[in-house]
C-alpha cells in the first residue's frame, strides 16, 4: 500500500513544476516586452539614454573580459588544430588545417566561447547586482523616486553588451586562429604564410559575418536573462545566489539553443 502514495505525489510535482515553468516563461516574455517598451522610449527620446552606465558596462563586460576571452579562444584554436592534425596528416592534407580552423573558429567556436564566458562573467554579475538591490529595497526605492529600473539598470547593460560582444568575438577570432596557426606550424609544418594564403582562399567574409552576426543575439539573451533573474529575486540573500546560478544556466542554455537555430537557418539559406 505504501508505494501507492508515491504516485499522486509525483503527479502533483510534475503538475506543479509544469505550471511554474509556464509562469516563468510568461514572466520572462513580459519582461522582454517591458524592456522593448523602455528601449523604444529611449530611442524616441535620446536624452533619456544613460551614457555613463553604458560606458561603465562596456568597460566591465568588454574591456575587462579581453584577457580571459583571448586566452581561452587561443587555447581552443590550439586544441582544434591539434585534434585535426593527426587526421589531416594521414591523408597528407596538412594545408587544410587552415580550412578547419578558419571555418570552425569564425562560424562557431569564437562566438560561442565568447558568449559562454560573458554569460558566466557578466550575466551572473547582472543577476547578482539586481538581485541584491531587490533584497535591500533599492529597486522599490528607485520606483518610488520615479526612476524606471528598466531604464537605469537593464537598458545600459543590454546596449553595452550588444556593442561589446561582437567586438569580443572578433578578438576571439583573431586569437583562436593565431592558436591554430601556431599549432599548424609546429605539428604540420604549415608555415604562417602558407596558412594565411590558404586561409584567405578557404574562408570567405560570409563565415566571418555569420559568426559576428550571431553575437548581438547572444548578447541580448545574456543581458535579458541576467537582469530578469535579478528582478525575480525575492526574500533574502540566499535567493540572490539561487537566481544568479539560474541566470548562468539559463543564458548558456538559451545561447546554445539560439546557436542551433542559427545553424538550421543558415543551412536552409545555404550560407
Amino acid at each position: 500500500m505504501r508505494h501507492l502514495s508515491f504516485t499522486p505525489k509525483l503527479v502533483t510535482r510534475i503538475g506543479k513544476n509544469t505550471f511554474d515553468f509556464g509562469n516563468q516563461v510568461l514572466d520572462m516574455l513580459s519582461f522582454v516586452g517591458e524592456t522593448a517598451v523602455a528601449l523604444g522610449k529611449s530611442v524616441m527620446q535620446p536624452s533619456r539614454i544613460r551614457w555613463r552606465p553604458i560606458l561603465f558596462n562596456i568597460r566591465t563586460a568588454g574591456f575587462d573580459a579581453l584577457p580571459i576571452v583571448g586566452l581561452l579562444s587561443f587555447l581552443l584554436g590550439v586544441v582544434v588544430a591539434y585534434q585535426g592534425a593527426g587526421q589531416l596528416r594521414q591523408y597528407g592534407a596538412n594545408i587544410f588545417v587552415a580550412d578547419l580552423i578558419g571555418l570552425s573558429m569564425l562560424r562557431e567556436f569564437a562566438p560561442l566561447i565568447t558568449a559562454i564566458i560573458v554569460a558566466g562573467r557578466s550575466g551572473s554579475a547582472y543577476a547578482a547586482q539586481i538581485g541584491t538591490m531587490a533584497v535591500t529595497e533599492e529597486i522599490d526605492a528607485m520606483r518610488t523616486l520615479g526612476i524606471s529600473p528598466q531604464e537605469m539598470l537593464v537598458l545600459p547593460k543590454l546596449v553595452a553588451l550588444v556593442i561589446v560582444l561582437p567586438l569580443l568575438t572578433v578578438f576571439a577570432d583573431v586569437l583562436g586562429i593565431f592558436g591554430g596557426m601556431l599549432m599548424a606550424s609546429t605539428q604540420l609544418d604549415v608555415s604562417f604564410t602558407e596558412f594565411l594564403d590558404r586561409f584567405v582562399k578557404a574562408v570567405g567574409p560570409t563565415s566571418f559575418m555569420i559568426g559576428v552576426g550571431k553575437a548581438p543575439v547572444f548578447a541580448a539573451i545574456i543581458a535579458i536573462v541576467g537582469c530578469f533573474q535579478g528582478f525575480m529575486t525575492k526574500g533574502g540573500a540566499d535567493s540572490v545566489g539561487r537566481q544568479t546560478t539560474r541566470s548562468v544556466v539559463q543564458s548558456i542554455f538559451l545561447v546554445i539553443v539560439a546557436d542551433a537555430l542559427f545553424s538550421i537557418a543558415f543551412s536552409v539559406l545555404q550560407l
Binding site: T132, M133, T136, E137, E138, D140, A141, M142, T144, L145, G146, I147
Partner: peptide, 30 residues
C-alpha cells in the same frame, strides 16, 4: 511620486552612491 517621500525599512539607499549622492539623486533626476 514627486509629491511624496518614502523611507523604507532597510533604508533602500543605493549602495553604489555616497549618502550625499543618494540624497541628491531625486533632484538630479527631476
Amino acid at each position: 511620486r514627486k509629491r511624496w517621500g518614502v523611507m523604507f525599512q532597510n533604508g533602500g539607499l543605493f549602495g553604489a552612491l555616497t549618502v550625499k549622492e543618494n540624497v541628491g539623486l531625486p533632484m538630479r533626476e527631476h
